[in-house]
Design a protein around this nucleic acid. Structure first.
Length: 694
DNA sequence: TGGCCTCGAGTTCA
DNA sequence: CTCGAGGCCA
């Protein structure tokens, strides 16, 4: 009877071998890196505890996978190393302490670099000419991919300078920039080719093409970070100077490399790069610290395959695997039926993730997500999680080996009101046709109406709106203005009763009445508004903040807008035939006219004036984009001030943008502005300008 | 007609 | 933030 540990280690070995095969040989990974790492760590720990279980063919005994037969094998005279990993600050502390103790150097210098998520390769130059390039393989020998590497433009075919060393091997990372990866996948989708799983696999797959012409079409790039075998060259005494030398020889070296010392110095670098991570043009999975002085490196030596003088400090995984518990749908303000998955919560990129949206039926069809499926979730550039793909091998099957669940299909009837769900010709989103008959749409319409950027009713959050709608206190947004303190108290009592939540009701006497008074006061305050806010709040399809503002300016008052026909509406900038028809249709609807009349008779008012067609001021005709946080005011306030000076404030950066105001921690928009060579202001410049012109 | 450029709508977690 | 789609210009 095999022990529990023996059974588990055999299972782990099988899982890891499978994953390796999929990853290295088929270029089609099945599980995320983080999970692979975990399996590997578990197996390492098991084998450390039970040395008798460590078989010679265990995946822990090698670093990569045997090269495929398609390419010639190349032996690395100087092995290509793997690196020890750190996942916490403490592990970095131990690393620095160990080095301090053994070198006797209190504060040794480290060369610090981003750890690119690509493919490690070795380039061999003889008398200055590129003669051979190989993948890392298992570290001792890899595959000869010279012909493919020649197509990578970042790799010099000849070294610069007039006295090249006789022999030089340069190690570095081949990678695929994110933008290139996305572009390729767009193309693949349209042309029926297989999409790449991620940029790193894009790089790996491209290098393993047997036909270099295919590789040449893939936009690969390269950064150098180390030396291999050398001959006839006097080497610099430190790693950082080696990198500088490599630059002189014509190799691209990451501009993010730096030198730091002390635990705090290393951690500061880790955090600095971490902040930039999402805005970089390529994926990184950590940073690498390398003891800078070569004599100190030699003193530290190696443990098995990993140098003791270097450490890879990893960032939290951005991809994790989990299991789908159920697939649900939401009904939005416009009736849009949006499916989402409830998953077993997992830690991704530093937070627990339990839900992810599937956007629409197209995405469901593309992913083919079903209940019970194992899926990979990612928190990419932004905060919002998404399902990357299904791990098909783990789909639950019935006894006959068929999937337990059929492909998911959107409901044909609204789960809230039972009306038909329809998808318009050529549209991606399916919509509930119930209109305001649907409680979900009424609810969302009211939430939108009360939201900060619309009527700004403070304190009227989602929870109360839900109760107001469900208990029928509010049928249209105008009803909000008829509610009294007593109505709110009664509603709260009924809602608590219904939900069985008693605790709060006891103190309802005093505290709750205060709450209700505040809410009524907030609703009252919102009576005093502006035409653009009102127009936005009404929730006319395709009329958002920006269009509402243009309409308000163009017409100056509500009545002329309500009376305008489609022809008159199309004359408004940014309003075309489709939006014009929607607006005209909205105001032609009797119900909508009643709501507007009721709002007016309940005291909702706004200043009206003459139509304003073109803004003037020092920034007239200028498009300004605000990004990052400002110290002295909010972005909205700054935007309002800039608009008062005639600027058009927009949310996205393009060639047509005039000025980008970049505050604290500005991200991708600033990067894009720099790329396009736009005028960029910092906060001081903005304040100076406002002071001068206000 | 195609290719930007914008805007609108929906969205997750702490 | 990211998609989809409407508007506008070459």
């Amino acid at each position: 009877m095999p022990s529990k540990a023996a059974t588990r280690s055999a299972e782990l070995r099988r899982l890891i071998d499978d994953a390796n095969h999929r990853y290295h040989v088929l270029d089609d990974p099945a599980i995320p890196d983080a999970e692979y790492d975990r399996l590997m760590r578990e197996l390492e720990a098991l084998e450390a505890q039970h040395p008798e279980l460590a078989t010679a063919d265990s995946p822990t005994m090698r670093v990569g996978n045997a090269p495929s037969a398609k390419f010639a094998t190349v032996r690395h005279a100087v092995p290509m190393l793997s690196l020890g990993n750190a996942f916490s600050d403490d592990e970095v502390r131990e690393f620095v302490a160990r080095i301090g103790k053994e070198t006797g150097d209190e504060s040794p210098a480290f060369s610090t670099e981003p750890k690119l998520d690509g493919l490690a390769i070795s380039l061999r130059y003889e008398d200055g000419a590129f003669v051979r390039g190989a993948t890392r393989g298992d570290g001792a020998s890899g595959e000869d991919v010279t012909a493919n590497l020649r197509t990578v433009k970042a790799i010099p075919l000849r070294l610069r300078g007039n006295k090249p060393p006789e022999l030089l091997e340069v190690r570095g990372e081949v990678y695929m920039p994110r933008a290139a990866f996305e572009k390729y996948n767009d193309w693949a989708l349209k042309n029926g080719a297989k999409a790449l799983a991620n940029p790193r696999n894009g790089a790996a797959g491209s290098l393993r093409q047997l036909d270099p012409r295919i590789t040449a079409q893939r936009p690969l790039s390269f950064y150098a970070y180390a030396l291999g075998e050398t001959g006839g060259a006097r080497l610099p005494p430190t790693h950082s100077r080696t990198l500088a030398w490599l630059r002189e020889l014509g190799f691209p070296v990451s501009p993010l490399v730096d030198v730091a010392s002390g635990v705090e110095g290393l951690l500061a670098y880790y955090r600095r790069i971490g902040e930039q991570r999402d805005g970089l043009a390529y994926d990184i999975d950590g940073v690498v610290y390398k003891l800078d002085r070569y004599d100190q490196q030699r003193a530290m030596g190696f443990v098995s395959r990993a140098p003791r003088w270097a450490l890879a400090h990893k960032y939290p995984a951005q991809e994790e695997a989990t299991v789908v518990e159920s697939i649900e749908v939401n009904v939005g303000r416009t009736g849009a039926v949006t499916p989402w998955v409830q998953m077993v919560p997992v830690h991704v990129g530093g937070v627990m993730v339990g839900r992810a949206t599937l956007h629409n039926a197209d995405q469901i069809a593309r992913l083919d997500v079903r209940v019970g499926d194992s899926v990979i979730v990612r928190r990419a550039g932004d905060v919002i999680p998404e399902v990357v793909r299904v791990i098909e091998e783990r789909r639950p099957l019935d006894k006959r080996g068929r999937p337990l669940h059929p492909p998911y299909e959107l409901p044909t009837q609204c789960p809230v009101c039972g009306s038909a769900v329809e998808r318009e010709e050529g549209e991606v989103v399916a919509r509930c046709t119930g209109g305001l008959f649907c409680a979900a749409q009424r609810k969302q319409a009211l939430i939108h109406f009360a939201s900060r950027r619309a009527m700004d009713v403070e304190g009227l959050g989602e929870r109360f709106v839900e109760a107001l709608v469900e208990l029928d206190y509010v049928k249209s947004v105008a009803d909000l203005y008829r509610l009294s303190v007593d109505d709110f108290l009664e509603m709260k009592r009924r809602a608590d009763e219904r939900d069985g939540t008693t605790p709060e009701t006891v103190k309802a006497g005093k505290v709750a009445s205060k709450w209700a008074e505040n809410l009524v006061a907030a609703i009252d305050a919102s009576r005093n508004t502006t035409l653009e806010r009102l127009l936005f709040a009404l929730g006319i399809r395709d009329v958002g903040e920006s269009t509402a503002k243009t309409l308000a300016r163009h017409f100056g008052a509500l009545d002329p807008l309500m009376a305008a026909d489609e022809e008159a509406l199309v004359a408004v900038p940014d309003v075309g035939p489709i939006v014009a028809a929607r607006i005209a249709h909205f105001f032609a609807e009797g119900h909508n006219r009643e709501v507007i009349a009721a709002l007016r008779s309940n005291g909702v008012h706004w200043p009206e004036g003459a139509p304003q067609r073109a803004a003037d001021g020092p920034l007239a005709g200028m498009t300004v984009v605000l990004t990052g946080g400002l110290e002295s005011m909010s972005r909205d306030q700054a935007g309002a001030k800039l608009e008062a000076l005639g600027a058009k404030v927009s949310g996205s950066v393009s060639k047509k943008t005039g000025i980008v105001v970049a505050g604290e921690a500005a991200g991708s928009k600033l990067a894009k502005a720099q790329e396009l060579g736009l005028e960029i202001w910092d906060e001081a410049k903005l304040l100076a300008f406002l002071q001068e012109h206000e």
